[in-house]
């Protein structure tokens, strides 16, 4: 039986390859942290003495953050409000629709007619365990039982 969940992990990969992937990804994170040095100052300045890096004069640049991101924040606010209202409306619409009966299933007559087939024949074809379907140039469908092996 298939083990569950059916994951295919790197367990069978060469150790060198696994270590390479880990190392490269770790380097990516380190690069990210280095580039984010300024932003980390925002956090570190408050606890700098504990970390051996007292720098109380560092500017947290909150003003810069605010100035640059304010226009985008306004658009985000509008869109999220729109989404929240839509979500409530969608939920209400779904709840109201629950009182309605379920749509009638598509009957074989309608489906057979759309393919130019006979409904009774289609129902019989649906009982075949193994069938072969031929599709003509104009899209016409013909179903036959599969030949015995």
């Amino acid at each position: 039986m298939t083990p569950w969940p059916p994951l295919i992990t790197a367990a069978h990969q060469p150790t060198l390859m696994r270590w390479r992937d880990w190392f490269l990804t770790l380097v990516m994170w380190l690069m990210m942290f280095v580039m984010l040095e300024t932003e980390f100052e925002l956090l570190i300045d408050h606890t700098g003495e504990f970390l051996g890096r007292p720098d109380p004069a560092a500017d947290p640049h909150w003003e810069k953050f605010h100035q640059r991101l304010a226009p985008y924040a306004v658009v985000i606010g509008i869109l999220v409000t729109f989404l929240t209202v839509s979500a409530v409306l969608t939920r209400l619409r779904m709840r109201r629709a629950r009182r309605r009966p379920l749509p009638a299933p598509l009957d074989a007559v309608a489906q057979a007619a759309s393919e130019g087939l006979d409904a009774l024949q289609l129902q019989a074809d649906r009982e075949l365990r193994v069938a072969v379907v031929f599709i003509g140039e104009a899209g016409e469908v013909r179903v036959e039982p599969a030949p015995e092996p």
Binding site: Q111, E115, L122, D125, R126, L128, R129, V130, A131, V132, V133, F134, I135, V141, V143, A146
Partner: peptide, 21 residues
């Protein structure tokens, strides 16, 4: 159940035949 298409038709046609059968 198994349905064989006599000729290769592409995924969409295979799905349509599946829905029909």
């Amino acid at each position: 159940r198994v349905v064989h298409l006599a000729k290769n038709q592409g995924k969409a046609t295979a799905m349509n035949v599946g829905a029909l059968m």
